[in-house]
Amino acid sequence: MKPQIINETSRLKSVILGVANSNGGEPDLEDAYDPKSIKHIKEGTYPEEKDMVEEIEAVAFILKKHNVEVFRPQVIKGYNQIFSRDIGFVIDNKFVFANILPDREKEIEAIDFVLDTIDDDQKIKLPEQCHIEGGDVMPHGDYIFVGTYRGEDYSSFITARTNVEAVDELQKLFPQKTVKSFNLRKSNTDPKSNALHLDCCFQPIGDNFAIIHKHGFLEEEEYNWLVNLYGKDQVFEIDAQEMYDMNSNIFSISEKVVISDVYFKRLNAWLTSKGIQVETVDYREIAKQEGLLRCSTLPLIRE
């Protein structure tokens, strides 16, 4: 396989979609990785496996309907493998292994059968001190957008997944690109004040549109930079509730086709008004783990 990704919206040819089978059930409170999961564990509303399997298989159906080659991780018994985006990402023709939470390293092994088809000189492993997850990384032509957290208290946040060392390393690895980082708002306790990854508060859509949540960004000038890049009329602004519901975490099959949650009525109407076809699924149960459609997918090839 020859991976190739230069942006978020070109025609998708090949993707790894996570699996929800044998996901280990409800974790202990101390083992939860984000405030939204913690909230649902406490309230007794954590999602059940059968519901999540149904939701993610609906995504697989839509991808195949649009002639996308879909790979699925090998199932590890009792292990959460829904969010394949976290474990790696492609920039240009390079597959970059994410340095993720240590408890999740088995997820990489489950896609070895795909990675083994990629030439070794097209695979990159970052230095150990570089923390990064795919939800924070967005190739955008001559740019690489990267969500990070620059605070000195980085280590105190379970929700801070990409550090400045990783941002600097990406710039060294891709000197022909401009790596533009964004300082994101983090909270271990309040899911409405936590941008777990960049795709939880921002995403490019179509030819030149974007979804954005202003208060996901700690630096207003960085939010303004993005709005100015697209133009205010091209940006769909979401509020704290819509960010919590994961409105910015939909997924593009092409510039003209996206997969969205049927629950996102306002967003889906806006997308349709811009000439974008919206394929809908119900992803309310998977969303309880603070991830949605982009989080579930790891694109390998876009035309």
Rank of each mutant, 00 (worst) to 15 (best):
E152L: 13
V53G: 03
I91R: 03
K186W: 03
E169S: 05
N93W: 03
V235G: 00
N247G: 13
K2R: 09
N224L: 13
Q74A: 15
G206T: 05
V75R: 01
G141Y: 08
T45L: 08
Y79W: 06
N93F: 04
F264P: 03
Y143T: 14
D233A: 14
A110T: 02
T9S: 00
V257M: 01
G206W: 03
C295P: 04
G44R: 07
E107I: 04
V258P: 02
V137W: 03
V137Y: 11
Q241A: 14
T162K: 06
R104T: 01
E107K: 02
M1I: 14
N224M: 13
W270G: 11
N80V: 01
I205Q: 04
H131S: 10
K39H: 12
I253N: 03
A98M: 04
L17W: 00
I211H: 00
Y143F: 14
D116Q: 13
K177R: 11
K65G: 12
M138D: 03
D103N: 15
K288E: 01
D233F: 07
N183R: 02
V75M: 01
I91M: 07
G275L: 07
G275K: 10
F89I: 09
D103Y: 13
V68S: 04
F264N: 07
A240V: 14
S37H: 07
L298H: 01
T280E: 15
L126S: 04
L267E: 11
K2Y: 13
L184Y: 00
V167Q: 06
S248T: 11
D103F: 10
Q241F: 13
K288N: 00
Q241K: 14
Y283W: 10
Y143G: 09
K42H: 13
I6A: 05
F83V: 05
A20G: 08
F209T: 08
E57M: 10
I253D: 05
K265Y: 11
K94D: 11
R11S: 11
G44V: 08
D86E: 10
Q4P: 15
F217Y: 05
R104I: 04
E237R: 09
D207E: 15
E255R: 11
P139V: 08
L271H: 02
Y244V: 06
V75T: 03
I5Q: 00
I5H: 00
V137R: 02
L198N: 03
G135L: 04
V90R: 12
T9I: 06
L29N: 14
D190E: 10
I6P: 05
D136S: 05
I62H: 09
L198I: 08
T280L: 08
D190L: 04
